[in-house]
Design a protein around this nucleic acid. Structure first.
Lengths: 213, 213
DNA sequence: GAAAGATTAGTGGTCAGACCACTTTCAAAA
DNA sequence: TTTTGAAAGTGGTCTGACCACTAATCTTTC
């Protein structure tokens, strides 16, 4: 009889243990040696289970300290998917277009919500007026304000893979355009905001931003 | 100096090896002892890497026989993460919302292109008229027609991850709504198409589709 | 008494070697 | 020729031993 693998049992037993003992993200998990004794298996078996969970980003191990339950928001779904998705069709065009999909969706979400009335929004306006404002910060701030963490993660990852079009600092000549975008969002005019945003980003992507130098 | 984990190196080295030696799904991978010798690490380290890959469904091990490259369609990543993470409703909500982002973007792309004039489009219309038309087929067809392969793949994986809202067959009562969507797309009326589409999918997601039974 | 340094216990990271359970292979026996 | 069973090879598991690192504790020094 081909017995079921032990380490798979360990995986589910650990999941139960985490649930029952109400271990929260960031909390410490019993040490490998403790677990081995408690579950009556060898330490190497425990480790095989832990390594699997670590690769998934479900736990975090720090040598000398211990093993900790990871923040669910740090799960590696996207990263792992990326290694398998992006290996064949990394058509740069698709990456850029998909980034744009998420960006416009974010703007739309902000317009449809009250996000532009939060204090965070005001600070974004102020930073746009100040010096040393990085382009990427502007877009990322919009992604964050959309409230969809998964979308944010996907966007962030695409940015890494597709070459960051938002590299560098906002030039003085760009500022009016960005201010228009913010204003349109405040007025919940998604259409205008998206049009202006696309105008801005397409210039960056085409590398024609030397006009702002 | 906190050294990077070895087993992670093993994971990527193995991926390279698979690529270089052109190992196909179903083929056998060198034994654990061989790998340990070749990569000059202990067998237990090799095993930690292999167990991780196995949990992801990337490889398959059979005692007494060996380790084999798994069928890519059997990747288990999604289900596994689901059991750990999806208890968080917020995350599930994000997944659904992100799916919707890609779907609406696809409709928009089709409207902006000539895709609705292709022969594929006509066959979609015909299938909608026939019997046994699966809901998922309808949406997937739209994703394909958008022409963004990356977006399609992300959508596909999200669908598995978030629980497929498009499970089951199209009911007779749904057909008029779907036909409206197709018609709106043909007339390149993205706004109407998206509104109708959202109306349709929101009913499915809320599980209120019993009204169509 | 307080700050700086040294010690130590505990943790994950890795390795080697030993069994066990299982499959395949192939040569010896019927 | 067919059957059998021993051997070789594989993954599954356990043990015990180091190593590298962290954090708490103790000791020394000022």
């Amino acid at each position: 009889m081909n017995q079921p693998k032990r380490y798979l049992n360990i995986v589910s037993e650990m999941r139960d243990m985490i649930r029952e003992q109400n271990i929260r993200p960031g909390d410490r998990i019993p040490s490998e040696r403790e677990l081995a004794e408690k579950l009556a298996v060898g330490r190497s078996t425990i480790r095989e289970a832990l390594r699997s969970l670590e690769l998934l980003g479900l736990i975090e191990t720090r040598r000398g300290e211990g093993t900790f339950l990871a923040d669910p928001r740090k799960h590696r779904l996207v990263e792992l998917l990326a290694t398998f998705i992006l290996q064949d069709n990394k058509t740069l065009e698709d990456v850029r277009e998909t980034m744009c999909i998420h960006e416009t969706a974010a703007i739309q979400a902000i317009c449809a919500s009250d996000a532009s009335k939060l204090p965070v929004w005001e600070s974004l306006r102020e930073r746009l007026g100040g010096h040393e404002f990085i382009r990427e910060d502007f877009v990322r701030e919009l992604m964050v304000l959309s409230g969809n963490r998964l979308s944010l993660k996907i966007w962030f990852l695409l940015k890494q893979y597709g070459g960051n079009p938002y590299d560098g600092e906002v030039m003085p000549e760009e500022r009016p355009l960005l201010k228009n975008i913010l204003q349109a969002i405040e007025q919940q005019d998604a259409e205008t905001a998206i049009r202006d945003f696309k105008a801005w980003s397409s210039v960056l992507i085409k590398g024609e931003n030397e006009q702002w130098r």
